[in-house]
Design a protein around this nucleic acid. Structure first.
Length: 125
RNA sequence: CGAGCGGGCUGCGCGGCCGCGGCGCAUUUUUGCGACGAGGAAAGUCCGGGCAUCGCAGGGCAGGACGCCUGAUAACGUCAGGUGAAGGCGACUUUAAGGAAAGUGCAACAGAAAUAGACCGCCGCUCACGCGGCAAGGGUGGAAAGGCGAGGUAAGAGCUCACCGACGGGACGGUAACGCCCCGUGCCAUGUAAACCCCGUCCGAUGCAAGGUUGGGCUGUGCUCCUAUGGGUUGCCCGCCCGAGUACAGCCGCGAAUACCGCUUGAGCUUGCCGGUGACGGUAAGCCUAGAUAAAUGACCGCGCUCGACAGAACCCGGCUUAUAGGUCCGCCUCGAAGU
RNA sequence: GCGGGAAUAGCUCAGUGGUAGAGCGUCACCUUGCCAAGGUGAAUGUCGCGGGUUCGAGUCUCGUUUCCCGCU
């Protein structure tokens, strides 16, 4: 599953200015239609030490990757909320829910999620 | 068997599958394959270096750091071995440990008195008031003119003597710190130098966001400060150097907190041998072991167990300090109890 | 990443090594028919935390925690 990383300051300010926002209990996404799939993760110092911050970034990137299969070309910024614990299953479930809610999937008739997420949902974490 | 002391090692493992980072080789333009990919503290940024730029190839003042001795080292505030002191029955541990006889400051309260004296007291003279002698005892304090015993005395006092301590001199051992012995001096005088300070040793400043290359070139119009009351150079002084900053318009290549270099082969790691009590040094062979830049290690499944702590490289090394679930090993180590 | 600084009463700040203070706020009383203003009095600190030096640390010193600022 290919996607690009957002790196330039210009792209960030464009996204923050004109992007649409969607919230859930665990995270906020800011997105804007683009010609390619782009994403970035935003984890500042308030989340904890470097080990904790790295952990959050990895979990978010992996959760995005697992759900980005049928995503329409969109630039997206993922911002988690401060919590005691962070888990992949919860992030993945929330991202999938937000994508459906905001109708960002290319084929809206197919309600299917990746088998990985189904397993995660079964665990009910 | 119990309680300790000192020192070291390790920091979940195996397999499958999807994914990430740079590298190499193919493929030729985005894919495939391959090996590699965080730590003992990567942390705090407390010291010391390398490297780079600036200054100078000059000096002085100020400031800072360190401080028993010898050694190790590129260097250190680090390390090793030793000395003294303090603590512990002991194995052992801790130690910013020069100078108070260069000078200055401070020592609240209490206490008679804080570097200087006599409150209670003791003794002599006197009917008494009082005068004189004394510093043993009491009391205050962190500290009150070495300690303790004997002689001595009116009472006392190193006044005298023995022992211990202090100071001075000498011999011996040791590279030295120092140790030990002998002789002498009755002992002119508290503590604090992590108070100023003195003595000795060392230190130019700034830090990879250092710094370099590209980032256009040319032309025109200007503006600001200025040949010394300015600017730069280290906090200051002497000395030294002299131009600097910026706006607008035009043409071809259009990302600029960017791209590339610095950027990982180095006081490197492993093993053996040699020298040294040791830190460490020498030598031979082998090895290449992260290099990102909105910043790489994650998700899922299966198995095992003690159910996995502290924690993530950002120019690189040597230390220090702080955090750390546990597991495990070593020592003709120490103490206690019981038995032989 | 690199370099600086701060922490004292509820708040804003003082504080030579010797009993921790000021202003505002709080509480009680006086004044008033009542409130405000005014007056009188009182309470309030592990001096961020843990060692060390000292007879004695808010102060000196070492470590540590949290916060703030500067450098592109």
């Amino acid at each position: 599953m290919q996607y690009l990383r957002i790196k330039k300051k210009k792209q960030f300010s464009k996204l923050l200015k004109g992007g649409k926002r969607a919230h859930s209990e665990l995270l906020t996404i800011i997105y804007l239609p683009d010609n390619e799939k782009k994403m970035a993760v935003c984890v500042g110092k308030k989340y904890g030490k470097s080990v904790v911050r790295n952990r959050i970034k990895r979990l978010l990137r992996e959760a995005y990757r697992a759900n980005a299969e049928r995503l329409s070309p969109t630039a997206m910024l993922l911002i988690p909320k401060v919590a005691e614990e962070y888990s992949f299953a919860a992030f993945s479930r929330e991202i999938a829910r937000l994508f459906r809610k905001e109708k960002l999937l290319e084929d809206p008739t197919a309600e299917g999620i990746s088998p990985k997420c189904k397993a995660a949902e079964k665990d009910g974490v």
